[in-house]
């Protein structure tokens, strides 16, 4: 394993992040605050509690998940698409490193950035509502796994995309709806029965449910299923990555 090379990619990617640190920091703080004003104050005044948790606190895991998923995808897809777009990818392709090492560098950096933003949102939320995390280790573990798996997905999208539209298409048309409909802001039990069943086909439900369990010890679906979902999703992304590596699909002409 060429750790020097992985670190080089990782650091180079992170430096892009640090160049715009203030911006990276401020935008999640503002958007989180807005969510609390809109959802917490407006809706929260009507919905008092969800299964014994105040509505404001209830939406925190969903908020974090929403940000972490979109950030992971955006960072990773952009991270690999940009060098492809401006041509600097030649250097990565000509370096004595394996595809796995390239993935580790880019995905690692994208996941780190997303994790950082997740932490910022968690902190900002704690200023608005009282939060007591029941399973802190599981919470961190879930967040890290989510960052990694969605960064993998983002990496795949970045390799697949042939232009900027495609780059934004998947997050916009697929991921954001799935996350919003995945119980970020409500409990599935609040839906009519038909919708409850339909919702269970949304993979994001399992992630958010598991993450919420780590916070409050309550979940829409059994925690085992959540773990299976995130594990399965990560494995699926890894298989696709492996296939890309084998075939050189859309990287090496």
């Amino acid at each position: 394993m060429n750790w020097t090379a992985i670190l080089a990619i990782y650091k180079f990617e992170m430096s892009r992040f640090f160049r715009t640190l203030l911006q990276s920091f401020i935008s999640p703080v503002i958007s989180t605050s807005l969510y609390f004003v809109v959802f917490g104050a407006a809706i929260g005044s009507r919905i008092d509690q969800v299964e014994g948790v105040s509505y404001g606190a209830f939406i925190v895991p969903g908020l974090i998940m929403l940000a972490v998923m979109t950030q992971s995808i955006t960072n990773a897809s952009f991270g690999i698409y940009f060098p492809k777009f401006i041509g600097t990818i030649y250097e990565v392709l000509s370096a004595p490193i394996s595809f796995l090492e390239v993935v580790m560098g880019y995905v690692g950096a994208a996941a780190t950035k997303a994790l950082f933003i997740g932490a910022v949102i968690l902190f900002t939320s704690s200023l608005f509502v009282e939060l007591e995390i029941q399973h802190p280790i599981a919470m961190v573990g879930f967040m890290v796994l989510t960052c990694l798996s969605f960064a993998l997905l983002g990496f795949i999208i970045g390799i697949w995309a042939k232009n900027f539209e495609q780059l934004q298409l998947v997050p916009l048309l697929i991921v954001t709806p799935l996350v919003f409909l995945g119980g970020s802001f409500y409990s599935i039990s609040m839906l009519p029965p038909v919708w409850q069943t339909i919702t269970l086909f949304n993979p994001v439900v399992y992630l958010i449910s598991g993450f919420r369990w780590a916070f409050f010890g309550m979940a829409d679906v059994p925690i085992g299923l959540s773990l299976l979902a995130i594990g399965g999703f990560t494995a699926l992304c890894l298989v696709v990555i492996w296939w890309i590596f084998k075939t050189g699909w859309r990287i090496r002409s």
Partner: peptide
């Protein structure tokens, strides 16, 4: 920085 990056990418200390 880009020059240092290249060196690192090729696994050189």
């Amino acid at each position: 920085r880009t020059v240092r990056f290249s060196r690192g990418l090729f696994g050189k200390a």
